[in-house]
Deep mutational scan, measured.
Amino acid sequence: MQIFVKTLTGKTITLEVEPSDTIENVKAKIQDKEGIPPDQQRSIFAGKQLEDGRTLSDYNIQKESTLHLVLR
């Protein structure tokens, strides 16, 4: 499925993911596309910070959902 990741600069990245993917996985995909190390990424969805060990389905993130990426 496709999800979108919006950065603070307003750029939107499209990722191909599975509901079973962990947040860690997703951060690795963002690193592949953007070169941002996962330890600098904070992902926010529906106002909640997403934890690395959880999966997209844990957070009820579905296709075409938009995550927000904040850098630390």
Rank of each mutant, 00 (worst) to 15 (best):
K11Q: 08
K11D: 07
I30K: 05
E16N: 11
Q49S: 10
I44V: 10
E51R: 07
T55S: 08
A46T: 04
M1S: 02
E34N: 09
S43Y: 15
K63P: 15
S57P: 01
N60F: 07
L50F: 04
G53D: 12
F45T: 03
T14F: 07
G35F: 05
L71T: 09
K6C: 15
L8K: 09
V26N: 01
F4Y: 13
Q2W: 13
D32F: 11
F4E: 02
L56K: 00
T12Y: 10
G53P: 05
P37C: 08
D21Y: 07
D52R: 03
R54P: 03
L8E: 12
I61M: 04
Q40N: 10
Q2R: 14
N60H: 08
I3P: 01
P19V: 07
D21E: 09
G35D: 05
D21F: 07
L69E: 05
I36F: 11
T66F: 07
H68F: 14
T7Q: 04
Q49H: 13
R72E: 10
K63G: 12
E24V: 07
K63I: 05
P38S: 13
N25I: 14
S43Q: 14
E24L: 14
E18F: 14
I30W: 02
E34W: 15
V26H: 00
M1Q: 00
D58Q: 07
E34Y: 13
G35T: 02
K63Q: 12
A28Y: 12
G47K: 05
S57W: 08
G10H: 04
V17N: 00
D32E: 13
S43W: 15
Q2I: 15
I3N: 01
H68S: 06
D39L: 10
Q62W: 06
E18T: 13
G35Y: 04
Q62R: 11
T9I: 07
Q49C: 14
G53W: 14
R42P: 11
Q49R: 11
E51H: 07
I61W: 01
F45V: 04
G35P: 05
L71E: 08
Q31V: 07
N60D: 09
R42D: 13
L50E: 02
L15G: 00
I3S: 00
K48Q: 13
D58G: 03
Y59Q: 03
P37K: 09
E64T: 05
E51V: 08
V70M: 10
T55W: 02
P19H: 04
K29C: 04
S57M: 12
E18Q: 12
S20E: 10
I44Q: 05
D52N: 10
T55N: 02
E34P: 04
G53R: 08
V5E: 01
E16R: 10
A28R: 15
I23H: 01
M1Y: 14
E24K: 11
G53V: 07
D58L: 02
S57H: 09
L8A: 12
D58C: 04
L50Q: 01
A46L: 13
I13M: 05
E24W: 15
T9K: 11
V17L: 03
N60W: 05
R72I: 14
K27E: 03
